[in-house]
Design a protein around this nucleic acid. Structure first.
Lengths: 135, 135
DNA sequence: ATTGATGCAACAGTGAATGTTACATTCATT
DNA sequence: AATGAATGTAACATTCACTGTTGCATCAAT
């Protein structure tokens, strides 16, 4: 897989699920379609389940299914469920003794926070149901 | 050092240079202050020189100096000089056969491009001269 | 009971970024 | 001219997060 694979995998999978919401899919099926490993799929989809976007069933004839209607799941929901920022925060670096560094961190951090909010707003406009039609 | 260290190192160094623009600094001095290696400093500052933000002089009593006045260098200039996107683009992935994946990539990519532009606009508002006063 | 699925822990493999070493080059100083 | 101090750059080592993999416990339908 490639970079930012978690978000790609999640969106890709939900996009397909949106086309046939009743069907239950196994992590093996999903992994094969996505060209990755079933355990990786479970890791990523597990996050989405924690966020209430998916349900999973154990045991024979188990698998994964949407927890809501496709029109009720936005790209922002998925993004937030994975709690990974596309906007690199620079990490929670320890407060530096150097005043220049300190001022910089505050300035840059405030810009990035605004950008992050803006990103989420834009992602919230699109649902996974819209991913199937009009490219 | 940490993540996104190139941008941090660049901004930090320029911030200090803005406080005494005439003074010439060696990569060894800068590295010591930043807690890193002189070669790393040269790598990063070299990018800034290519972008016309800094000048460097070889030989005895050489070193690094601002190429413009501090008020003429914005955070966006530095960001662009390093041509690294804080907004992860997801890379130039090969066009997928799967239509869902294709639609997703286009949608997400267009959002990220907007966000990237917005980020640069906001960074362009602050100059490295402003980093020294009013935290 | 058996089969086929998730859940999870532990470890291996990968790749990008940083750190390091070494050396050629350049230029002021002596 | 010789020296010393700096950049420029290539090559290699190290680090670190992420992905991939294996193994096994657990759970539920058959």
């Amino acid at each position: 897989m490639k970079r930012n694979s978690r978000l790609s995998l999640a969106l890709h999978t939900l996009g397909h699920m949106a086309g046939d919401p009743q069907r239950m899919r196994t992590s093996a099926d999903i992994a094969e379609h996505a060209g990755t490993n079933p355990v990786v799929v479970r890791r990523v989809l597990g996050k989405l389940r924690e966020a209430g976007l998916l349900t999973s069933e154990k045991g024979h004839s188990g698998g994964w299914c949407l927890a809501r209607e496709p029109e009720q799941i936005t790209l922002a929901d998925v993004y937030l469920a994975l709690d990974e920022s596309l906007v690199a925060t620079g990490g929670e670096e320890e407060t530096p003794a150097c005043s220049v560094e300190h001022v910089l961190q505050r300035k840059v951090a405030s810009v990035l926070e605004e950008i992050e909010r803006s990103l989420i707003e834009r992602l919230a406009v699109t649902t996974i149901a819209e991913v199937r039609e009009h490219g």
